[in-house]
Nucleic acid binder design. Sequence first.
DNA 1: ATTATGACACAGA
DNA 2: GTCTGTGCCATAA
Length: 110
Amino acid sequence: MKNDKTDFYESVYNIVKQIPYGRVTSYGIIAKTLGAAKSARLVGYAMNNVAKYKDIPAHRVVNRNGELTGRHHFSGDLSMAELLENEGLKIKNDKVVNFTAVVWNPLQEF
DNA sequence: ATTATGACACAGA
DNA sequence: GTCTGTGCCATAA
């Protein structure tokens, strides 16, 4: 709900949850969508807390360069790249191939 | 209250 | 095109 300091996180989770299949987005885009374009780092910080939530496809969130920066934070048998490749994406050297082609913008609707 | 850190982004060289 | 430095806001200690 609101009033809670975790409201920022909820907003981030809300965006990430809306990322469609086979699509990825960057922290900066999410931050900008939340109105905190300069708080891209907070988005990443929120993602760390997301590990407790299972419905958050954090593997679809990468940095503006399409690099799987959060891969190290991922825990489990499936690594971030594996999950993305499972969605039809191509991962090369821990980076999303054709990143600009798979970037999804929340403001771009669907 | 202050300092340090962080799954980033941008500007400058 | 790559590398370096700075900013930015929120959380943790």
